[in-house]
């Protein structure tokens, strides 16, 4: 009896000790990658959320100006936001002037709490979306990445950003207001360096996600982005590039997605049958193709179905 009790106790202690070792190691290993003068990016993995990556699947960045640092997106968790701040401090001793949020998805704003006290700017639609969906996103991420999320809460942006030019510490920054990936997508063009932070309007070598997407608007937005005089493109997910191939890749996938779902609905396929369609080889180099296509079917198929169905009563 006593032996059994001791064994149980030992197992519990062992489990706790193992857990404590892991818990001490919630390090995102953020390395600021310089992409242009004064401009740095923390490049995330092109994976889905997991207990291993802690939600570091996103690109965030910062611009060092003489008036202070401009931070673009705060990452998936409080821990990420804090680690981002210390990684920034290892590059510059300038204080943080402001934060811009590109849109309301959890991997882009749940680090906000780490920047409490600094102005956090978002488009009005984004602020509204965070108010409505932020807490739900946070709950969901706790389930998907676990203790990396400790202390994380949905924290509202404190300022509404308007489209237009902002001259700040020697940088001529253009705030661009679009939609398509969500109902409020901000892109930031630094005219001084030619760097475009596209947020999730652009996924590069990683299949795009559609939980709040409008394909027609998204395609129109990509046409607009194409006309911008940028030299360096920082996508929301995937590698940084210096040409426009990421844009044409996005457009062709979106057009294919639209056609495929339309055809499937017209043929009378169910959602599960549509998910199992063969996917073109040309998109195979984008990570998570099958998984994201299947998610997009869930997000988008009902609207294609409703265009095919007729009133029958």
């Amino acid at each position: 009896m006593n032996i059994l009790k001791r064994l149980v106790l030992f197992a519990v202690v062992l489990a706790m000790a193992t857990f404590a070792v892991q818990a001490g190691n919630f390090d995102y290993q953020l390395q600021a990658q310089k992409v242009a003068k004064d401009t740095y990016v923390f490049v995330g993995k092109t994976e889905d959320f997991s207990f291993e990556n802690g939600g570091n699947i996103v690109n965030t960045g910062f611009i060092v100006t003489t008036a202070g640092v401009i931070v673009i997106d705060t990452g998936p968790s409080l821990r990420y936001g804090k680690q981002m701040k210390s990684a920034i401090a290892s590059v510059t001793d300038k204080s943080i002037n402001r934060v811009y949020l590109t849109h309301h998805h959890p991997d882009h704003f749940l680090g906000n709490l780490a920047f409490e006290g600094t102005p956090i700017y978002a488009l009005s639609t984004t602020a509204e979306n965070i108010k409505n969906e932020g807490a739900g996103f946070a709950d969901n991420l706790y389930l998907m990445v676990g203790d990396w999320m400790r202390g994380t809460d949905s924290f509202q942006p404190t300022k509404i950003a308007k489209a237009g030019r902002v001259l700040l510490g020697g940088h001529d920054i253009e705030i661009l207001s679009y939609s398509g990936h969500t109902s409020g997508d901000m892109a930031i063009l630094d005219n001084t360096t030619g760097v475009l932070f596209s947020g999730d309007l652009i996924f590069h070598k990683r299949t795009l996600t559609t939980p709040h997407a409008n394909i027609d608007k998204w395609l129109a937005t990509i046409d607009s982005l194409n006309k911008l005089p940028f030299k360096v493109l920082v996508p929301g997910h995937g590698p940084i590039s210096r040409d426009k191939t990421a844009l044409s890749g996005m457009s062709s996938y979106l057009r294919w997605l639209d056609k495929t779902l339309e055809k499937a609905a017209k043929k009378g396929l169910s959602m599960t049958e549509t998910m199992r369609l063969d996917l073109p080889q040309s998109f195979a180099s984008n990570s998570l193709l099958k998984q994201e296509f299947s998610r997009s079917v869930v997000h988008l198929f009902p609207s294609y179905e409703s265009r095919v169905f007729k009133r029958v009563n």
Partner: peptide
């Protein structure tokens, strides 16, 4: 009760 559908 509004019903929509199609037959193939």
């Amino acid at each position: 009760g509004d019903t929509y559908g199609k037959r193939w």
